[in-house]
Design a protein around this nucleic acid. Structure first.
Lengths: 363, 363
DNA sequence: AAGTGATGTGGGAACGGTCCCACAAGAAAC
DNA sequence: GTTTCTTGTGGGACCGTTCCCACATCACTT
C-alpha cells in the first residue's frame, strides 16, 4: 500500500488532517483529543503502518528506556555459559516487565570500548557481568550513569553489586560432606582470582577446619588414622581442566585415601567425576563428588551431581529491579546484595545407606 | 570535574572556541580541521568526557547500526539454550566486527510485540531465531526492513533463512549406526512440528530404508531374523522427555531386541541414555546411543555421546553477514543457506572392536 | 451584549548531531 | 590592483518527536 519505509508524525498528521501536536497527543496518549479526531488519527496509523520513532523520542525525552548489558569474559562460551545464560534470560524477562529493552555486548578484551559504546547509545543504565578490570568500574564511575555489577568482585564500597553468597555456600558444602562421613577430602579449586572460586574455597576450608579436619596442600600419603584435606588449584575453570587435574592428581587421590571430591564449580567437578568413572571408581560408592553452580547438566549426569545452587534467577531479576531504582534516582539501595546458596543433594554423594536419613535430592 | 551527565556538541564547541560544525568535523572525522583547532577540540573532549550521542546521530543519519535479535521460544532456557546461546555468541562477535550492536529480545508469547518494539527502535535489520508463527513473518514483510530467519521453517521462497542441513545429517546418522552393524534401531523423535526434528527424522528414515531396514511404528516383538526400526515420537524435546519416553518404552526396546538408540537431539538422547545406564544396560557394549546437535554436554558425558554437529558458529556469523548485505541493499543474496552437519563419533557408539576401523572420535 | 472560563487544536522551540552551502582571507595569476 | 582559486571555518536547515503556550470557539454569567 505504501512503499516508504518509515513515516513521520508529520506525514501521519497530514493524512489525518490534523496538526502534528494533535497527532502526537493521540499516539503518546498524553493530552486530550476529541473522539472524532482520535479516530481519524488511528485510521491513518493503520493505513501508514505508522511506528513512532523511539530514536526521536529518546532524543527529546533524553532517555532511552534501554539498558546495556556487558559480559566481560575472554573466551567462549559467553552468552552460552550455563550460569551467565540463565542470568541473561532473567534479565531479559525482568527488563521486559519494567519496560526496558536490552543492549547486549560481550567484551573479550575487557576493554573500555564496549562501555563507551553503551554510553554513546545513551542507555539508561548498565549491568556489568563477570569479572571486570578495576579500571572499567573507575571509568564508569566518571560518568553519572547508574550501573550494577553482577558476579564480579570489588572492594569499592560504592559499587552496587549482586553476588551469590559463595562463602556460606562453601561452608554448606563442607557440612554436607562431613555429615556424610567423609574425613579425607580432595578439593579441586578454580582460579583464585575469581571472586566466586576463592570465596567458595575459603568458606569450605574455614568450615572444615571448624569441624576439626586439618587442611594441607602437601600430597604426602596419610596414615590410617589421619584425617586430611588436599587442595589442588586450577588456573582454568572448565570441564577439561577438571579432567586434566584429576588425571594428574589421581595417584595422590588414591594414596591419600580420599573418599570425596569437592570442586568450586560443576564443570570442574564433572571433569573430575568423569575421570574417576573412567578408571572404575564408583560414584558415590567409592568416592563422592560434589560441585557448585547447579548447572542444568548436573542433574542430567549419571550419576546426578550433588551441588550447590546459585540463585541465577534472583540475581538476574534483581539486577534489573535494582538498576531501575537507581535510574529512578533512589540513592539508598543496598550496595551488597547476596543470594543464598543451597545444597542440592543428588546421587553423587548419596550412598545407599545414606538414603534413609536424607534421600530428598532431586534428580 | 564536571557534574553534568552528558554534554552536547554545542557545549563542546563553546569550550573549544569553535563552531559546532567544526567540532563535528573533528569528532566524526569527515571534513577538514586545522591541526591547532583539532587539538583544541580534542582537549575539550577530554575535559568534558564528551561522548557523541548515537541517538542524535541515528536521527539524522536515519539509521542506527543496531540489529534486533528476537528469540521466539515459549519456555526457558532461551538464551541459555545450548544451541541458541552458541548462535547468539557468534552473532555478537560478528556484529561487533561489522560495526553493529545487538538489541536482544526474547518473545515467549510468539507475539508481534517484540517485532513492533524493534521497528520502533529503528534497528537496521532483524534476526529472527527459532520457530516463529507465520504471521510474524508476514508482519515483518509489510515493513521494508531487512531480516533473516535462523533455524525456523518456512515455505515462503522470499525469506532469507539459515538452517543446518538436518536431512543430510539425519542420513549421516543412519549410515553411522548401520556401519556399526546395528539392524534393530530405536528412534526417539522430537516434536514433529519443529523443522529440525522432522527433517532429521525424515533424513534418517529415508536413508535407513535405502539401506534395507523396514520401518514400523508398531511395537510388536521382532523374530530373531528380522530387522526393524521402532519410532517413538515425543511432544517435547528436553532431557526429561527423553527420560520419560525411554522409561515408558523400555520394555518394547528390550523385547524388540534393539541395539541402538537415535534421538533427534542430544537432550533426548542423553535422557534416554541415562535411563539405560540406570537399568544396567552398558553403553555402548549392550546398546549404542546417538544424538544430534553436539551440545557441550555431549562430549562431557560418561560415556561421551556420539552426535551430529550443527555449525552454530557458521550460522550465527553468517546471519549477521548476510543481514549486513541486505542492509547494504544487495538483492541477490541466497534465500536458503544450509550448513553442513557432521557426525561426531564418540564412545557411546564405539565398542572396543569398532575402534580399530575408525576410532577417531574426539572426547 | 460584553466578559469570563473551559475546552480542543495548532505553532514552534528544543533535543544533539550532520552536512550543505556561504563566506572570509590569503595566494596565485593576469 | 583586480580577479580567481583555494582553504579553513561558521551558519543554519533538518532528522521526528514532545510539550509549552497561544489561540479560537463556544457556553454561560451578569
Amino acid at each position: 500500500m505504501n512503499t516508504k519505509l518509515n513515516h513521520s508524525l508529520r506525514e501521519l498528521a497530514q493524512l489525518a488532517g490534523v496538526s502534528k501536536s494533535t497527532a502526537s497527543r493521540v499516539i503518546s496518549g498524553n493530552g486530550y483529543a476529541s473522539p472524532e479526531v482520535r479516530e481519524r488519527v488511528l485510521r491513518a496509523v493503520d493505513e501508514l503502518r505508522y511506528k513512532p520513532s523511539a530514536v526521536a523520542r529518546a532524543m527529546v525525552a533524553r532517555r532511552t528506556y534501554n539498558i546495556g548489558v556487558i559480559v566481560f569474559r575472554d573466551k567462549l562460551p559467553i552468552v552460552s555459559h550455563t550460569l551467565y545464560g540463565r542470568i541473561i534470560d532473567e534479565i531479559l524477562m525482568a527488563a521486559e516487565e519494567l519496560g526496558y529493552s536490552i543492549f547486549l555486548k560481550t567484551d573479550r578484551e575487557m576493554s573500555l570500548r564496549s562501555t563507551d559504546y553503551m554510553l554513546e547509545q545513551r542507555v539508561d543504565g548498565l549491568i556489568l557481568i563477570s569479572r571486570l578490570q578495576k579500571n572499567v568500574i573507575d571509568y564508569v564511575k566518571n560518568f553519572k550513569i547508574p550501573y550494577v555489577m553482577v558476579n564480579g568482585s570489588t572492594e569499592d564500597p560504592d559499587v552496587v553489586h549482586l553476588v551469590s553468597n559463595d562463602e556460606a555456600g562453601g561452608a554448606r558444602a563442607a557440612e554436607h560432606l562431613y555429615e556424610r562421613g567423609h574425613r579425607r577430602l580432595f578439593i579441586l579449586a578454580g582460579p583464585g582470582e575469581h571472586r566466586s572460586h576463592s570465596l567458595r574455597l575459603a568458606g569450605f576450608l574455614d568450615r572444615i577446619e571448624q569441624l576439626g579436619l586439618p587442611v594441607s596442600r602437601s600430597l604426602r600419603p596419610l596414615s590410617d588414622q589421619e584425617h586430611g584435606i588436599t587442595v589442588v588449584e586450577s588456573p582454568e575453570s572448565g570441564f577439561d581442566s577438571g579432567v586434566r587435574l584429576m588425571e594428574e592428581h589421581y595417584e595422590a587421590f588414591r594414596s591419600r585415601g580420599c573418599t570425596a571430591v569437592f570442586s568450586t564449580n560443576d564443570m570442574l567437578a564433572l571433569g573430575a567425576m568423569k575421570v574417576l568413572l573412567e578408571r572404575g571408581v564408583r560414584v558415590p560408592e567409592d568416592a563422592a563428588v560434589m560441585g557448585y553452580d547447579n548447572i542444568e547438566l548436573a542433574a542430567m549426569y549419571h550419576p546426578p551431581l550433588t551441588t550447590v545452587s546459585v540463585d541465577a534467577a534472583g540475581i538476574g531479576r534483581d539486577a534489573v529491579k535494582i538498576l531501575d531504582r537507581l535510574i529512578g534516582g533512589e540513592a539508598d539501595v543496598p550496595r551488597l546484595n547476596e543470594y543464598a546458596s543451597e545444597v542440592i543433594v543428588r546421587q553423587s554423594t548419596t550412598r545407599k545407606e545414606d538414603e534413609a536419613c536424607s534421600g530428598i535430592g532431586n534428580t
